[in-house]
Design a protein around this nucleic acid. Sequence first.
DNA 1: ATGGTCGTAAAACGA
Length: 255
Amino acid sequence: MNSVRARAERISAWLERSDVDVVAVQETKCRDDQFPAEVFTGLGYEVAHHGLSQWNGVAIASRVGLEDVQIGFPEQPGWGEPAAAEARAIGATCGGVRIWSLYVPNGRDVEDQHYLYKLQWLDRLRAAGASWLAEDPGAQIALCGDWNVAPQDDDVWDMAEFEGKTHVTKPERDAFQAVVDTGFADVVRPYAPGPGTYTFWDYKGLSFPKRKGMRIDFVLASPALAARVGDARIDREERKGKGASDHAPVIVDFG
DNA sequence: ATGGTCGTAAAACGA
């Protein structure tokens, strides 16, 4: 969302009209002591946030219960010197569904160490997901968030513009697909097919009005949860107007 | 035009 504090009023308005039970947000850009919980609690949501600095930051808000909050996933890789886990993952059980709010590292550049960090992060997430399903094949798990990967060519406005860039490389796409192959399905794409269907538009260069977007935000659902999906959509309208995030909300109806 | 737009935090840095 690129700052929860800068977008407090838009978030409130969106929650009021969207009528969602659970919301997973990424890039709150604040520490826990700076987090404006009242944006969510004021509308009847419980909320759990994990933020360590002005970077990253993830949260889950729910009005159907919020239990067993977990900061980070097992074996989540760290960043920096010395390597430390960043505020990129938070899990909670809401109405019987295990929700994960995930902010996959950007990768920055294919030559950057951050790119290797991104690939390792995705691989460790895959391993964690596989272990959860091995433990309980009937588990209802939703892996929600900014994956910073455009899995298909149609998920960017022009592949030629992404020559040699992150988000579309084979290793990134393979790492994303490995999570899918573990049993987590993209439950939105069937209801919001491409081409030209995106979840993110850069602030720079009037990319939104020019329809130069990327589909990089996904809800991946375990088999038991995917079976419940009745509808899904990308709320492109929320990208419009003053003070919009550069990402649009992705909404799934689990019946 | 080696930028372009944001947010954080107070100069760059990250996206």
